[in-house]
Amino acid sequence: MSAERPRRGAGAVLRRIPPVLAMVLGLIGLWYLAVIPMNVQEVLTRAERAGVEVSPPSAVERRDMGNWALVVRNPGTLGESWSLDRPRLPAPHQVLTELYESTVDEELNGRRGIVRSGSLSNRGLVYHAMVTLNATFVGFLIGTGLGILLAVGIVHSRVMDMSVMPWAIVSQTIPIVALAPMIIVVLYSIGIQGLLPKAVISAYLSFFPVVVGMVKGLRAPGPMQMDLMRTYSAPKGTVFWKLRLPSSVPYLFASLKIAIAASLVGAIVGELPVQQGGLGARMLAGSYYGQTAQIWAALLMAAALAAVLVWAIGRIEARTLRRMGMAQ
């Protein structure tokens, strides 16, 4: 059985890859295509300046025309679409170049890079990603801890269940990010700044999935199992440690995956009001200065972070469940 498993897993993965790859390639193709109409105005303006004849000669006329119509009328002058300096939509390879330059290149060759100065460059994406990651982790830990404590309380106390649970649900229908700027300003005014305000927002976003998952998990043991504990005349503490907690582990991990993604979103949103580094700050700076490639690179970095974090929790989950003998 155990010898068969990896092979079956590899086969399943191999069968799964082609459709996904096809979709990804299709999306990238669409992206390249979309670059043409998105940047056509700028391209035509540059072509006109270079002395090439452009179909409606005046810029005002062009501005009022549809982008696709412009593309159709000027098919010969679109070569620059994918290499503009400040495009409205950068092409994928431009984003990748920007990503490479602001990570590997900046650290290895830049004046402030890690090779020459010994610390991460504050102009590089790695530094900003680390700032965001720190806030994400702290927020995640606070949120998860509070969530688990609250869930334990809810499961053991009927009063808490009835009075706190409805408010926990209501709290999630409040768009928390509306609170983000205020939390940061208020905490700043009482002398707390830096990591913690962002972490508070992350924690707020990540505690709810944990509460819901843990309440479900702690209540997962069936009446049979609970009855068995009663026949052992087990005290509440023993029931909790030996039965409820172990059986809640799969639920916990399922919610941890949601929670870490949510807490990354919280950290990024929390960085918008204070410009002190981080991927959110980087995006906002990019939008102020029209550096679209920079925004896209930061976005890609955030996506990669989210993927790695969720994947890491998935790995820990698989290991823990196998150790506990609960893997399916």
Binding site: R88, L89, A261, I268, M283, I295, A302
Partner: peptide, 15 residues
């Protein structure tokens, strides 16, 4: 669905 899609906000506001 797990990505921080709010990050696209600056781009879309620009467009």
């Amino acid at each position: 669905a797990a990505l921080p899609i709010v990050g696209t906000a600056p781009i879309l506001v620009m467009w």
